[in-house]
């Protein structure tokens, strides 16, 4: 293995929390390694430049709408909801989502329990449904504290959970991904599935936020 001492401790990246320009270039050493590895993989016929381009395009197109549609369906269709909670992988396949090689476990928020997801060991996340995880999800601060003081973290997200409601934290791993099924807000009884999907935020599906209904 080559030496791995980073020669760049300046502020270009997520771990210091500063926002950066999207077209910022990385330190030259890192850009050199990335370009070299990519070109070698292409020369060896392992991947093609077109596949990389297409993968990035798909990344750019994938937001969290898919997750929102799945949640809205579960709110209006109880059979689907039961399938989603008992066998997440199979249920989301109805939306064209292939979770393999990981499994999906969907956990339901209720009047008594609030669920929250973390990956303390790295940044495992239901990417097939929610896309690339937000930067805070990958940060040391979130990973370290979510399992010890979830309520403090929730407060930092502006989410307050009543003391008598249990907060359950789910630690993801390489083979198992979690998705929170948030509670359907009051006042949406006559809303359509499409309208409901508009309400569902990414953060509510990670469990760091609740969903507010109309007039809340």
């Amino acid at each position: 293995m080559s030496d791995h001492h980073p020669d760049h401790m300046h502020a270009t990246h997520t771990h210091d929390g500063k926002p950066i320009q999207n077209d910022d270039r990385p330190p030259i050493k890192a850009e050199t390694l990335e370009t070299a590895v990519r070109e070698l993989l292409i020369e060896k016929g392992v991947i093609s430049a077109e596949e990389i381009h297409r993968a990035i395009e798909m990344m750019d197109e994938k937001g969290t709408e898919l997750g929102a549609r799945i949640v809205a369906r579960a709110w209006v269709d109880d059979d689907f909801k039961q399938r989603l909670l008992s066998e997440g992988d199979a249920a989301v396949r109805e939306f064209g989502v292939d979770m393999r090689p990981t499994e999906l476990c969907v956990i339901e928020n209720t009047d008594d329990v609030h669920n929250m997801v973390v990956c303390t060991l790295c940044s495992c996340y239901p990417r097939a449904i929610l896309g690339i995880p937000p930067a805070w999800y990958k940060r040391r601060d979130y990973r370290a504290r979510a399992v010890r003081e979830p309520r403090s973290i929730l407060t930092e997200f502006g989410t307050s959970i009543p003391e008598d409601k249990q907060v359950r934290v789910h630690d993801s791993n390489a083979d198992l991904r979690y998705l929170v099924l948030p509670q359907r807000p009051a006042g949406t009884e006559d809303w359509s599935e499409e309208q409901l999907a508009e309400l569902v935020s990414r953060d509510s599906m990670i469990g760091v936020a609740d969903i507010r209904g109309p007039g809340e």
Binding site: G17, P19, P26, E31, M59, T120, A135, R140, D141, R145
Partner: peptide, 21 residues
């Protein structure tokens, strides 16, 4: 990292759109 002391999470600041690289 689970359970170790760490700093606050600021969801407004700690968002980051990945660069092309």
């Amino acid at each position: 990292l689970g359970g170790l002391p760490a700093g606050p999470v600021d969801p407004a600041v700690h968002e980051h759109v990945p660069t092309h690289w």
